[in-house]
Write a protein that binds this DNA or RNA. Sequence first.
DNA 1: GTTCGATTTAAACAACTGTTTTAAATGTGT
DNA 2: ACACATTTAAAACAGTTGTTTAAATCGAAC
Lengths: 212, 212
Amino acid sequence: MGHTDTKTRILDAAEKLFARQGFDATSLRMLTREAEVNLASVNYHFGSKEELIKAVIARRILPLNAIRIERLQKIKNIARAEDCPPDIREILLAFLEPTFAFRKSARGAQDFISLIGRAFSDPRDTVRKVFMKMVEPVFQPLFELLCEALPSLPRNVVYLRLNFMLGAMAHSMNISQMCQLIPDGLSFKVDSNTLVEQFVVFVENGMEAPYE
Amino acid sequence: MGHTDTKTRILDAAEKLFARQGFDATSLRMLTREAEVNLASVNYHFGSKEELIKAVIARRILPLNAIRIERLQKIKNIARAEDCPPDIREILLAFLEPTFAFRKSARGAQDFISLIGRAFSDPRDTVRKVFMKMVEPVFQPLFELLCEALPSLPRNVVYLRLNFMLGAMAHSMNISQMCQLIPDGLSFKVDSNTLVEQFVVFVENGMEAPYE
DNA sequence: GTTCGATTTAAACAACTGTTTTAAATGTGT
DNA sequence: ACACATTTAAAACAGTTGTTTAAATCGAAC
């Protein structure tokens, strides 16, 4: 292999194109041209386009989830030790910060994050199911911790609010590079830091809203 | 024409299939088979598949926006007359209620709503641009009203929070019929009414959060 | 009843899709 | 240096895509 591993070249190109054009709109021919590899190598290394999609998602999300789970577990342990409900903001940050940190780290990271936002609402069962399966192990402790932090709320309300957050998050991931709804010709340059800060503030207050 | 207009039969079938399978995954052959019309009739009546997509969106969103704009205008007039900032919850309801009301009205309405949620994050420039253009006339007064209702917040913060809301909304539209992240095998039956109520509570509190 | 435009039909179009095949090239361990 | 498995390469595969064509059918006005 002259430069980079063929497998990772494919993954990188796929990540980029899938994120910017979508899964269906990206043909294996564009993809292999972008990666400068042979057309057949996708099927050779990954078996099929669909398996490639899974691989693209798995490569990034698994280590990311490991970090999130670890942080959530730490919060849970402290709450158990001190025998007091965990802090909401800490829970949110445990989930959000790794995402945004990762987003700024690797080169293709930004592409991947917006890809995640898309997979979240993908119409194809296969893609969404795979994605869901990967997210579940972090969703579950996140949900349980939130329930502990918000003991006055029914579980199904916490569940709804958690989904609101995930939706807002998925959308926010695309804001920066997305064709936006620009009010009055005034386009706001979205700074990544203020985005995170404001997101946490918004969600925290939404989460803590009294149950009417 | 024996039963319904060919054009609307195509629109109905397209609305249904686009929402459930996505734009790309729905071929014109499935579509025309579902609509029980001839394959060529799509190109005859709409020119192309892409124009059909636009038509599907426009048919529902234009009247919906008219209602929302009217309600927003009414709020604005009252606020002007009484010389006091408008109420946030009223603003939110002016935007949300027509959506959910419509969702329960027509038969294909539910499909359309989830289709909207998808168009909102569609990777293709064409689809998203068209959708954005249709949403803009309601986004603008909504944004301005929110700024008036939240005078202590910088405009770009209001802008961000509004986007959070739209993201949460787009996602929530798919919750009911979506393959969900089911925590602990406990699947919550999502009641449409509590969904709306909780959504308003969540967003209202998020919007009103103090600017840190 | 005939004529004319609008609509529908079936068939064919070229382009592209993901995948497979076959052969050559490359690298690895002995 | 040889033999062997892995990887790359080019070409062809069968199937599907959106779109177009050209003939058939329909519906109303005259």
